[in-house]
Design a binder for these strands. Structure first.
Lengths: 134, 134
DNA sequence: CTGTATCCCCGAAGATACTG
DNA sequence: CAGTATCTTCGGGGATACAG
């Protein structure tokens, strides 16, 4: 959703061009909330829509819905409806989504080490870097 | 650059919030061309600006420049100027960028297997999936 | 509760022209 | 050759209102 990558990958695939494996993977969790959603579902079990809303305090209604829809389309999560007077909808990580976790773990580890390194290097000021990016 | 993630990560860091390691890593190669640039620099050695332009046939002048600038700011690549009558500028992957390659390799492998699986599953039509995304 | 429909904003991506 | 400056376009993200 966030993502120019996502779109261009889809176009490539539609044209039968499968030479974009890295970008394809990248497109899986591009989107401002997808990684957080994925990790929450993985580590803390299935959640209902509003439970996720509470877990992600800053996400808007519509955006959460669209992120979940895309994650479903990519088959990374499963959506289950428990019937009843007021049906309950549960989102859970799927086997495919689960298989993506090692990649996310690798990202976590790299980011962890990198941030650590940046904080002890006085010559690289993180706030300055943020400034530069404007 | 592409990225809502990049921006929100920078804001978090500026506020002293370092609890976004995965997103931080994600922000490294979010941007439509960054992974391709990184891999090219890694596997096929330093390149000059115009050489990169030729390698990425669809990228525009300005966008390539901005992607390279951000990669520099993130210290993933090094920019070297060889002085002379007409100075030559070379872009090469940095040690930090090099350390990111295992993560990218993991993404490559996952994407490869996933795409393979999708192509043999007739029940999941990739073009259809692309349609759904509209 | 779990969404969809609408409208707005902003920044990334692109095209083009200009510069040292 | 290696960029910067400017303008336009397009789509993601957000807020809000409405619906089943």
């Amino acid at each position: 959703m966030t993502d120019a990558v996502r779109k261009s990958v889809q176009e490539k695939l539609a044209q039968g061009d499968f030479s974009c494996t890295k970008e394809f993977t990248l497109a899986m969790f591009s989107g401002k909330w997808k990684i957080v959603i994925l990790c929450n579902l993985y580590y803390h079990g299935p959640f209902r829509f509003n439970e996720l809303m509470r877990l992600l305090p800053r996400v808007s209604h519509k955006v959460l819905a669209s992120q979940l829809r895309e994650l479903q389309e990519d088959q990374l999560i499963d959506r289950t409806t428990v019937p009843g007077a007021q049906p309950e909808v549960y989102y859970a990580i799927s086997p495919v989504g689960r298989s993506l976790m090692p990649v996310i773990d690798a990202m976590h580890e790299w980011g962890d080490q990198r941030l650590r390194a940046l904080r002890v290097q006085p010559q690289f000021n993180i706030n300055q870097a943020a400034e530069n990016h404007r």
